[in-house]
């Protein structure tokens, strides 16, 4: 070691002071940065897909999986073919997590979703503000600490879907949130106009009592977990927080008499279609 090296070494000596670098804080910042970049990727993917399918307005969170329901959900069918639509895989289980526990895990993701909308100037109709205890938890499905939940704003104009793969996931239990309008019409039709929530595959029109979701490559349709009112539904919780490819699923709705009243396709992200054996 020469004289310059010795001097630099002495000058950099910090033995007399404590270091104020928190690895945990760095990890948190790093996770946020990674998450933001993933959101940006999802946003651009969503915009591109919307442009191609021409079924939705510019909406950042358009393609992020199942949403929809109101108040208390019910398992609409048991896998038999007594109802309209034929045999189906039973619906996913209701999550045992408390309303408040789910809400707390979704608030930061909700802020990111609103910030993203603001930054890109989209979903300007969304005036419902942040999700809080005044929002209704319409439907919740999951096992352990992984869940999919749908919150509905007090004025029922916005549905916010929150997904989490749980503590084992990339976001360590923090939910990823999509917000969609329940009234914004993205495609006019007869007898139903298609709203944003319906186009995203989280809500069916009034009168639907059974929802079946056909996933490509699966022989049997999946029975959705349907809310008691509002027509919000889900086929389960994400098995991974990592964004994967989009899968176009077919959503069929039947009324109490078994008559088909709804039939649309919607894009789901693959990680939000739980493997059948793990539901």
């Amino acid at each position: 070691m020469n004289d310059i090296e010795r001097l630099l070494d002495a000058a950099a000596n910090d033995d007399d002071r404590s270091q104020n670098i928190s690895v945990e804080a760095i990890l948190q910042r790093g996770r946020r940065a990674v998450r933001r970049s993933r959101f940006a990727v999802v946003a651009s993917t969503a915009l591109a897909a919307i442009a191609v399918t021409a079924v939705a307005p510019p909406a950042i969170s358009a393609l992020r999986g199942p949403q929809g329901a109101s108040d208390t959900q019910v398992a609409a069918a048991d896998g038999t073919d007594t109802a309209g639509g034929g045999k189906a895989v039973p619906p996913p289980p209701v999550s045992l997590l408390k309303h408040i526990a789910i809400l707390m895990r979704c608030q930061s993701g909700d802020k990111e979703a609103r910030d993203l909308n603001k930054r890109y100037g989209v979903n300007t109709f969304d005036k419902a503000g942040p999700i809080d205890a005044k929002w209704t938890l319409a439907v919740k499905s999951g096992v352990g600490d992984a869940f999919t939940a749908i919150f509905v704003s007090p004025d029922r104009s916005i549905a916010a879907t929150c997904h989490s793969a749980g503590a084992k996931g990339q976001f360590r239990g923090s939910g990823v949130v999509d917000r969609a309008s329940t009234t914004y019409v993205v495609k006019k039709g007869n007898p139903h106009n298609l709203t944003m929530t319906q186009a995203r595959g989280i809500q069916v029109p009034k009168g639907v009592t059974r929802v079946l979701v056909d996933v490509p490559g699966e022989k049997l349709a999946r029975e959705a977990l349907l809310s008691q009112s509002g027509g919000f539904f889900t086929i389960g919780w994400p098995h991974d927080d990592e964004s994967k490819s989009l899968v176009m699923v077919r959503i069929r709705g039947y009324d109490a008499k078994g008559a088909p009243v709804f039939d649309e396709k919607a894009p789901y992200q693959a990680q939000r279609i739980p493997p059948l054996g793990k539901r």
Binding site: I21, I26, G30, A33, S37
Partner: peptide, 14 residues
Amino acid sequence: AEDATQDALVKVYR
């Protein structure tokens, strides 16, 4: 220096 180190480590994490 601490700020710079933290900024740099966040980049490394990414």
